[in-house]
Structures are given as C-alpha cells and as structure tokens.
C-alpha cells in the first residue's frame, strides 16, 4: 500500500529525514517510535503534504501513485488521513459542514454523487456511536474550545467518516487521560480491517497496548535504525532509547 524509499526531507535547509525506507501492506499496523526531534512528526507532515517541508531525495508510492506529486487535498482524497498532533481550532466553520464538504469533495474526486442530507446524517450518527463522540461537539465550530481529549476524539471521528485507506496517528495519545486514551484507541480498533493500514507515531507503550502493532520501527536522527515487532516496543519502554544508541555507536566503532 505504502512504499517509502530513501526519503530525505528538509525544512528551511536543515535535513531532518535522512533516508527513510518503509513498506506497509494493507491490514497492517506499524508503530514508529523515537525520541523527541528524531523526525517522527516530520515524516507524518511530509506524507500529508505540508508545504514547508522539502523532499530532497527518494520516493513515496501510495496505492501505486507517486503521492509526492499530489496536493494535500488529493492525497486525502486518495485515502491518506493524518490525525493531527495538534488539531487546529477554526472558529466560524461548523464541524458538520466541514466534514460534509470534505466527504463530498472526496466522493466527487472518485466520480461519485454527493451524499444527500439524510444519508449524511445517518452515516454521522453511526460513526458518532462508533467513536463515542458527543453530538454537541459536532454542532460547534471546528475544535473551538474543545479539551485536548475532545480534539483527539474529533480526529478519530473524522477518520471514521472519511474511511481512509491509510491513517497516520501523529502522537494521538499525547495529552490524553486514561479514559480518553481508551476511547480513542477503541475507536481506532473498530476502524481496523484487512483493507486498511495504520501508522502510529508515539513515544509511549500505552497506546500500543491497545492497538497491538504488527511492526515497530525506531526512528533516530532521521533514519529508521531498528525494525521489530511489538516486543521491541516493550524493550524500549523498559530500557529507553539509550540502549539502541549505545548499540549503534558500538557498531560504528566495530
């Protein structure tokens, strides 16, 4: 589904990603872990198409298409979804209207008719139950005055509505209390199936306890330095990132 090859990216002339290689197949959940400043969020931003990041080398293929050539909106319409680490508050734009517009622009892109009001409301109700989000939040302006947990829940609700092929959860667990984390994670789990893939970017084990990733990658200084399974995450939780750094420097010395 997603194939990242030797991806280099920089922001304002500073190289942050220094040759990322990653292959993700439908149905898989991949966790990307790493200390602060290792390039995790940059990777998410580059995949979603944030313009301030410049790709200097490498390629990203998503469902057979070179997505680096696509605008952020076309990437979304192709089925890529970024759950923001810091969802933006947009006063004056209603959440319902926003999601309806997004959904219908995506349908139009795929040559489908826009959803009529009744079908849209029905879909919304169904997904609201799925992710346990309160209706009153959706009648408000996008994220305006939402708590941290409400904002993250809203991200998962949008994911549920848009039914992306590939979801990137960018530190979705940050700022969540235990209950909110459980609700968000169970929402994500309900949206998993064999046709969809998920990338979970996180610092901590706790979200992974719920999501049970198939693969864990460690990002350090702009490169993936270790690949493993969920046991790797447990090891990291126990020992921290230093043991990997030590191993790496040992290798270099050898």
């Amino acid at each position: 589904m997603l194939s990242i090859k030797n991806l280099h990216a920089s922001v304002e002339g500073t190289e942050i990603l220094k040759g990322i290689n990653l292959d993700i197949k439908a149905g898989e959940v991949h966790a990307i872990m790493g200390p602060n400043g290792s390039g995790k969020s940059t990777l998410a931003s580059v995949l979603a198409g944030r313009e301030e990041y410049e790709v200097t080398e490498g390629s990203v293929e998503f469902l057979g298409k070179d997505i680096l050539e696509l605008s952020p909106e076309d990437r979304a319409r192709e089925g890529l979804f970024l759950a923001f680490q810091y969802p933006v508050e947009i006063p004056g734009v209603s959440t319902v209207n926003f999601i309806k517009t997004a959904l219908n622009e995506k349908r139009k892109y795929h040559g489908e008719e826009p959803l009529d009001a009744v079908s849209f409301m029905k879909l919304m109700k169904e997904k609201m139950n799925l992710v346990e989000i309160d209706k009153s939040l959706l009648t408000r302006s996008i994220n305006e005055g939402f708590s941290g947990g409400e904002k993250k829940k809203n991200e998962i609700f949008q994911m549920a509505m848009l039914e992306p092929k590939l979801t990137i959860l960018d530190e979705t667990d940050s700022g969540l209390d235990i209950d909110a984390l459980r609700i968000v994670a169970s929402g994500v789990n309900k949206l998993r199936d064999e046709n969809r893939a998920i990338i979970v970017i996180t610092h901590y084990q706790r979200l992974l306890d719920y999501l049970q990733p198939d693969f864990v990658h460690v990002l350090l200084n702009g490169k993936i330095v270790r690949n493993g399974t969920k046991e790797l995450a447990l090891e990291l939780e126990e020992k921290g990132y230093d043991f990997i750094k030590e191993e790496l420097s040992l290798k270099e010395e050898v």
Partner: peptide, 23 residues
C-alpha cells in the same frame, strides 16, 4: 495551519480559503 488542516481532509485550497474567509 487552518488552511492545511482543511486541505488535509480533502477540501480544495480554493474552497478551504473561501470557508475560512466566510468564517
């Protein structure tokens, strides 16, 4: 940031801008 957020959900740049100005 707001513009990117809307675009990242599949809303065209022009439409996203109009929504923000309208707001």
């Amino acid at each position: 940031e707001a513009l990117f957020y809307l675009r990242a959900r599949g809303i065209s740049k022009e439409h996203a801008q109009a929504m923000l100005l309208q707001a």
